[in-house]
């Protein structure tokens, strides 16, 4: 009995189709201006990949900020629960999950059964999130991959003092104008995100295996800096961006079992 999880985030939308715990398809598309259109598109692609028709899906759970207006969902569950569930399914030693997406970052604590026992989320703005990174990369006229590549080359860090994305951007622009090496500015940007994330992690307390999910987990420089700052190893799954959708799909399977009793 195939089921699906849909994670409609501010920047990316994922669909995972699952049957008896086995992943039949995992799709990532960008959300764009219309989250419903993105969800439809990702779903269509996932169905094609798994060779299924819409009617074959027995249960669908939507998550992410777009969950409230998700088409086709039987149930809506927050990213908090879904990322927790997804991460735990990949490694049952996980007790702490850091999810940094496009506009939200959160730290989730799990107990030994994988149940969420505490969480904190960033406050109301893009500071310390993927979007922040993208804006800064744009100001530096480079892409995220180049940012990742440059960071280790820095011998010093330039401090970025503004938390606000808009101010930080103009700060970066003036740092470039003042002639600071780009890798040092990159390091400064990374440090500012890492500091924010670490203080959130400390709020809930880091325990057990720490897994990072969400698109920013693909940013090797951030993961490395976070690791150094927290002093523990961070596990990054093969495809961190779909963990929320995977969690939603797993919850859909459980939901289906319950429904069928």
């Amino acid at each position: 009995m195939p089921v699906a999880g849909v994670d409609i985030g501010s920047l990316s939308t994922e669909v995972v189709i699952l049957e008896k715990g086995k992943i039949l398809a995992g799709i990532i598309v960008s959300t764009g201006a219309n989250s419903k259109v993105a969800a439809e598109k990702a779903m269509q692609m996932a169905l094609e990949k798994s060779g299924l028709a819409r009617d074959n899906l027995q249960y669908i759970i939507a998550t992410g900020y777009g969950r409230v207006s998700a088409p086709f969902a039987h149930e809506k569950v927050t990213e908090i629960t879904c990322h927790g569930r997804g991460a735990f399914s990949l490694d049952s030693g996980v007790r702490t999950v850091i999810d940094i997406g496009g506009q939200d970052s959160k730290v989730i604590r799990l107990n030994s059964r994988g149940k969420v026992v505490d969480f904190v989320m960033n406050e109301k703005c893009a500071a310390g999130t993927g979007r922040f990174l993208e804006v800064m990369a744009h100001a530096l006229e480079m892409d995220l991959a180049e940012m990742s590549r440059l960071a280790p080359l820095a011998r010093k860090t330039v401090t970025i003092s503004s938390m606000c994305t808009v101010f930080a951007e103009s700060e970066v622009v003036s740092l470039i104008a003042e002639g600071y090496p780009r890798e040092e500015i990159v390091k400064g940007i990374i440090t500012s995100i890492v500091e924010r994330t670490v203080s959130m992690a400390n709020r809930v307390g880091v325990e057990g295996t720490l897994m990072m999910t969400g698109g920013v987990a693909k940013n090797a420089a951030i993961v490395k800096a976070l690791q150094e700052s927290l002093g523990i190893k961070i596990t990054v799954p093969q495809e961190p961006q779909v963990v929320g959708a995977l969690g939603a799909a797993l919850l859909a399977e459980e939901g289906l079992e319950k429904k069928e009793g």
Partner: peptide, 11 residues
């Protein structure tokens, strides 16, 4: 606010 409340109630 809703996401935080939803997450809390799920917890």
């Amino acid at each position: 606010v809703q996401t935080r409340i939803d997450g809390f109630l799920e917890m």
